[in-house]
Design a binder for these strands. Sequence first.
DNA 1: TCTGGGGTCCTAGGACCC
DNA 2: TCTGGGGTCCTAGGACCC
Length: 432
Amino acid sequence: MAHGRLANSGPASNSDSTATILHADLDAFYASVEQLLDPSLRDRPIAVGGGVVLAASYEARSFGVSAGMPGWRARQLCPGLTFVGGHFREYQRLGDEVIEILGAFTPVVERISIDEAFLDVAGAVHLFGPPATIAAAIRGRVRGEVGLPLSVGVARTKHLAKVASQVAKPDGIVVVPPGAEHAFLEHLPVGLLWGVGRVRQAQLAGAGIHTIGQLAAVDGSVLDNLVGKGAGGKLGALAGNIDPRRVEAPRAASSIGAQAALGRRQATTGLLHSTLGYLADRVAGRLRASGRAARTVTVRVRFPGLRSVTRSVTVRPAISETLTLTERAVELAGTALAQHRGEREITLLAVSVSNLVEPACQLELPLRSGASRARSKAAVGASRWLVDRSMDGVRAKFGRAAVGYATVVFSDMDRVPEAFRELAQHDPRSSE
DNA sequence: TCTGGGGTCCTAGGACCC
DNA sequence: TCTGGGGTCCTAGGACCC
């Protein structure tokens, strides 16, 4: 690193310009947990996953193996690679333990995924010392009590703290003292900025922009033309270190979805019904558990070659009934497929709901005389909702498999471990 | 032989309203 | 007769994040 590791930020002042934002990020989390659980895997190139690499140990990364890579490609790059199945419940448990340790230093913790969180330690320096000292103490406790390597970035803003923790990896601390921000960022690659992925990195590289310093020097309108207006403004602010976001409590999710990879399959009516039924069942269940209903339903159909289309519909009243969601999803998938008749096979189906609202009172059953179509529709909705609620209750006691709609119970969609689906939801509120 | 599951945010065009 | 401007909502797609 051009700027090395700034292990010391000097004595902390109590002024507003002190860097008190920490970003704590577990290193190669899934892979590190596997190496923790099975000592024979330590110091060896391993990957969690199978068809796709979910996480790679640093030993594997040195061969070029990285998360998201197809399994066959990873084996090509690293012939000695060991694949491990994945202990998803352990990931959740150990991730929670780490977050608990963070909470011992400050209540201002914003968990943003299973393995990383922001902290603002402004109110904790009197108890625990300067931020750099707190960062070191956190790392020590996580290493000692949980057994996992954690990297920490310390800076004045969240975004900068996150960049710093990436620079600190593996297993390090980087402190960016106030005033040193521009020097710190100048020679770092643009890809370290939040919001710069493969595509934008390539766009920027095409314009000769490789470092954050170069990006900060670019005129705003030029940047807008390069990567689009919204992204351009954001990137400019980030590169120029104007980033006022605070550490905050997690919000409720604004969408809920589920998907299932199918391999290559003929899009038969039977496949559509069973798969969409299964997915709608998962989504609607979580929707009801959150006490909300959805106005917008979206279905995604993916074809070979990762080409995908989405179809969505916005309805009123909002829905949370499994069968109603299934019907909308089947209709949408039908529309999408009718518009892509050339496609013989599909590789994935996804159902998601958004536009989430507080449900209207579900128990008003308009069952009096002369049921109009609207009224009978409402009655169907209400009775479906009651059936769903009683199934939710049974499942809460006896597990998902205890009861369900026939197409769902008999579908073969549980190839993906339930624990992985639960983990992927990573709803930060669930582990308070 | 391009793969897993779960999300967020942004854009652009069109419908529709005043 | 069809011109102005502004706003909201909806749909489809895409980049990005873990």
